[in-house]
Amino acid sequence: MGQVVVLGLISGGIYALFALGVVMVHRGTGVLTFANGEVGTAGLFLAALLVDGWEIPLPFMDNPTLPALPWPVGALAAVLFAAGLGCLFELLVVRRMGVSDPVAVAVATVGLALFLLAGEFQLFGESPKELAAPVDGTVEIAGVLVTPTQIAGLVLAIALGFGLQAVLRRTDFGLGILAAAQDPSAVRLVGVPLSRISLTVWGAGAALAAIASLLVEPTVGVFGPGYASELYVVGLAAAVVGGLNSLPGAVVGGVTLGIAESAATRYLSGIGLSGLRYVVVLVVLLAVLIGRQTIPDLLKRLDEQTGRPAEARA
């Protein structure tokens, strides 16, 4: 039981970090992005190149080789690179789509995901790449060996989930981001540039995905094209489970899915089904989405039958 919880918390923290990025973008623009997993992977590739000592391929001259850089520098570069990708996508694609249907923007993010995935295959091939953990050593908690990066992932997820909102409330622009989800047109009418909010949240969402990818990668130690996308899909679901607009909700959603996954792995591994993670995601997602719509209906019908006025409940 303790093991299930610890393992669940560890993976849940990573899902939560991805989910926070999803919520940021949705809060600021009303759109879901399907690309940030691959944005995270792209960040990992950059970090790995820098940490290994990158031989920069340049045409018509000798390839200069960068000295091997320490992990934090590589990680910082990865996060900045990811943020840049997010901003670039906002500027070049989202902005040009004008006032558009959120589903169309979601489809455009599909294009970005595939673009990055195919680009990674093209540049790095299928063989797995290594990126060592920044800190060695493990701690044993409830019989589970836990690494410092894993703890960092969970702590960061919780801190960001519950702290980010407070931080945003302190600045005028952050307040504008929080208000944008509630009423985008009114945000413009008080003079906050909606386009800058959009740029910021696309950058922030991508950066969060890179952070999540960097913190989860040492658990296995190798990665390849598509690596973070396979985790990001759980983060997407976690954001939906958490209500899509709430940063703490994203953390709760991530941890819920993490624990559900580790419980399923522990107790259902006998049935011989691989990829239990995604089965759990689908089941929880459907239960939450359908339940959220059906339960209020049921309550209303119950009220009608017992003759209680609807307000009495509230």
Partner: peptide, 23 residues
């Protein structure tokens, strides 16, 4: 602007609404 339907930001406090108004 005093928009139609007033359009205050429901999940921000009164003072936060005003602070945003003074952006």
């Amino acid at each position: 602007h005093v928009p139609q339907g007033r359009q205050v930001f429901p999940q921000l406090t009164v003072e936060e609404n005003l602070r945003l108004g003074a952006y």
